[in-house]
Design a protein around this nucleic acid. Sequence first.
DNA 1: GTAGGTGCAAACCTTTTGCAGCATG
DNA 2: CATGCTGCAAAAGGTTTGCACCTAC
Lengths: 157, 157
Amino acid sequence: MSAHPERAGKPEKEASIVENALRKSGFRWTNQRALIVREALATHAHFTAEELLDLCRKKDPKVSRATVYRTLSVLEDAGFVEGLETGDGGRRFEHVLGHEHHDHMVCLICEKILEFRDDELERRQELAAKRVGFNIERHSLHLYGTCKQCMQEQRKK
Amino acid sequence: MSAHPERAGKPEKEASIVENALRKSGFRWTNQRALIVREALATHAHFTAEELLDLCRKKDPKVSRATVYRTLSVLEDAGFVEGLETGDGGRRFEHVLGHEHHDHMVCLICEKILEFRDDELERRQELAAKRVGFNIERHSLHLYGTCKQCMQEQRKK
DNA sequence: GTAGGTGCAAACCTTTTGCAGCATG
DNA sequence: CATGCTGCAAAAGGTTTGCACCTAC
């Protein structure tokens, strides 16, 4: 049912990649971080901080909200997680291990998020930036609208 | 000093475009809305809700925050105003009268927002959407990074 | 006259922070 | 055993809402 069945790679292996990277940067590898990373990597979906907290609490009910936020922030800085805007002011995350960069189409009706990638798009962005001497660190391209299924639903009415 | 000196068109004329559109949709045209629209159109910058409130209160100190938010929402729905993410969780707005659609480069250091446009980019987005039967209503392309000036500053150090 | 709009304050939601205690390296 | 991390609870934004009053149509 997920839009990214290919997303879930080898959780244990991916988790240890994160572990090594964080250790190398001087962070400690705590039970909480291991749990949070495991849950984040296991999720195919684009999750909110609160959803991740719920997932973690199923395994360990006393994980604190603050720790989830703090860990998400560390993971984002380290480039293992990316935040994305849902167009209605909300914020979701996705992990960035085991799959290439991609952009998003957000259905405003069913809230589904589709991923797509177009190399030419990436190139043109670089070009536009180069023209004005801007150095791109990251970018976000979101198309908001109606997905195929919801378009069909609408036509029925 | 503004990045968009061309932005300010003919405020009175543009305001009446908004007025007519809102009236036609069954909204009432109140003093507050007139004020808020006037201030929003007069600003060249990408403003926050709070900044717009401050601008309005200079003219009429008793405009309420709630009314600004409610009016911004009406204007956004009507397509006269667009919200944009600043990359650090913040939200800014820009009015969409008297200038073409464009995308944004956001400098993460000085917070300046540059505008740019590339027709080929637009085309490729449409194409990508068409491929999966997605209907684009609006889109947002933000490049986050470092602007030319801030790059130079950094090199000096 | 009557919706619809406004102001105020409180509520909300998400995220951050201060601090005392705990666990990792 | 020192520092970094955690949990808790409170604080901090930013935005929305309930309600009584007001005003445009």
